[in-house]
Design a protein around this nucleic acid. Structure first.
Lengths: 338, 338
DNA sequence: TTTTATTACGCAACCGATTGCGTAAAAAAA
DNA sequence: TTTTTTTACGCAATCGGTTGCGTAATAAAA
């Protein structure tokens, strides 16, 4: 009953050609204002809606941007996504979001699907175990903008958006040292990922600067999963020299550690000082409030969005792959400071 | 250099018709196995990739599902989205996600855009201020599955996926009463939204059941924003009869309240017992751990996903609009229990 | 061997826009 | 008034698949 109406219907109803209708609707200059008005009026009257499928086919563009993230449901990632969505949406693009669930195979599949879906650009934050990058070859070969964020990899002609994890790790660690910590432990995430390995580098550098030797026992690699907490607690309790400072690569995990340590009657910050990472909402709500590094997810998303849009519009400037580094910030709260 | 190759290229290379190629690739029964093999082999050899734009145009389907949520970056919503994404992705659909940012106008815009983009179905969680629903009329008229979740509205032929907020509110409140609270305060979100108004109904019902009269002062409507905390604290301090039980419509906000109340030297749970809502990760990490109602976001997403998929596949059964209600669960922790 | 039923594929219309090229009509210049 | 330049549109090809219908070739039945 509610037949879809096309430009041909409009053309027939107005006694003009379909081309004229199309140009009128797109405000093409070679159509007189009078005709444009007539077409637009009739379009409204009949409730015309453009068929994106046809537009896409004929222009070979989808007005759609693909995103692949490890997991949608993390505070940080959802902030990033919110920023991306807002930005690209204002520019008239839709966002197709998919999760790799930290599996390279899924990431590959998603990359392929999105390619076939004809996304105009792709934003990626890599899975833990991604170690080859052939699945991005299509994009590069066909000049489809490809941007990495947070969990990145350097590929020719691809922008990356990151924060300076090494520097942030350095500052967090140095802060602990300045608060008087003598024996630090870095509780890291998977070291295959740049974000965590770089933070560890900063950690080491801070130790070095303050004439503290880094030993293997100063770092514990975990999955940052609540289930790992007992392992961490045992590790801490079994060190011959008592650990008095903790640099944890995630606020939520740090919060879990705080809870478990308090149960073991560690006093925070008196016995052991703790600093987290990310500035999740949780960090200011635990007791004691958690010192941390502010890691601006939303801003990162906005920036990523702006970056794609500008690449998509300024099609001419084959700008050399640029890397944007966001500003982070040390936030001192009571978990490291009496 | 890297020319896109089409079914016509394959057809020419193999000396068959384009139709045969198409049918071979789609494993149509009217093509012999031998020919299918040849086509597939050649397709791989030449690196053929199907052009979704063309497929979409000719089938008038996009294999894409639209989602409109108020905000991407909330714990609960990102859980929901993660569940949806996983489910529909396994069924071969892509997900276009957009945010209304709690504004009906944006919601309308998104609904229209997604319609024009040709989504095969739409999942919606409503904005705060949505009070008319014309923007969903297209979907209903054109028989595009439309499913509401969490923040819902009853429209003909639309499924809804919810939890029993009223019952949950009732249980949370009754729990406080059973713990000995005499003067309760419900800190609600915007009462125009069903989720909050229903919880309040449950709150009232529990009072009634226990012969406690509900007065207007027993409910405080807020935006559940951290900025509202001082208002809440003042409100509590200024009651002539001391409040000894708090039912807060969000865990994060409850956590903020706990922090502020502790600063005011209220003892929790001795002076005042608090129960939240959602079972956010934060709830078990604050001090004291927060009693709450488990509100299964991820499961809700999965269910929503399954619901769309089944509607999309079983195209025949014009199933009467059905409403799925998920099971919630009272979780008792130390904020209500000594 | 002839007739009937299957199988395997080709033909061409169709989905609904976009766009380069050509031209009649109107406006400007000669 | 005639010629030249603009303006405003129409025509038809194109994007790359899908699919109903028709038929030659092969297999099964008579």
């Amino acid at each position: 009953m509610d037949k879809k109406i096309t430009i041909y219907d409009l053309a027939k109803a107005l006694g003009v050609s379909a081309g004229t209708v199309s140009r009128s609707l797109n405000n093409h200059r070679s159509i007189s204002d009078k005709t444009k008005q007539r077409v637009i009026a009739k379009a409204n009257e009949l409730g015309y809606q453009t068929n994106k499928f046809a537009v896409n086919l004929s222009t070979q563009k989808s007005n759609t941007i693909g995103v692949i993230v490890p997991k949608l449901n993390s505070i940080f990632m959802s902030d990033v996504l919110a920023g991306i969505e807002k930005t690209v949406n204002e520019a008239g693009y839709n966002l197709i979001i998919s999760q790799s669930l930290e599996m390279m195979e899924k990431e590959k599949l998603n990359a392929k699907t999105l390619y076939n879906s004809g996304v105009d650009a792709l934003l990626v934050s890599l899975a833990y175990d991604t170690n080859d990058f052939d699945h991005f070859a299509y994009y590069i070969r066909h000049n489809i903008p490809l941007i990495f964020l947070d969990r990145v990899h350097n590929l020719p002609n691809c922008s990356t958006i990151i924060i300076n994890n090494k520097q942030a790790g350095f500052e967090a660690t140095e802060h602990l040292i300045e608060q008087g910590c003598k024996n630090l432990l870095c509780i890291s995430g998977n070291l295959k990922r740049n974000v965590y390995s770089e933070r560890l580098m900063g950690f080491k550098e801070a130790l070095a600067k303050h004439q503290m030797k880094f030993k293997k026992s100063n770092c514990l690699e975990t999955e940052l999963d609540p289930n790992d907490v007992p392992k961490v607690i045992n590790y801490i309790k079994n060190q011959k020299q008592a650990i008095d400072g903790l640099f944890v690569a995630s606020d939520t995990f740090a919060a879990h550690c705080i809870k478990a340590l308090k149960k073991e009657h560690f006093r925070i910050p008196e016995d052991i000082k703790i600093i987290g990472f990310n500035n999740d909402p949780i960090s200011e709500l635990v007791t004691p409030p958690l010192s941390t590094i502010n890691y601006p997810g939303y801003e990162m998303g906005v920036l990523a969005g702006q970056s794609v849009i500008s690449q998509l519009n300024g099609s001419l400037d084959l700008q050399p792959a640029n890397s944007i580094t966001l500003r982070h910030q040390l936030i001192i709260r009571e978990s490291t400071h009496i």
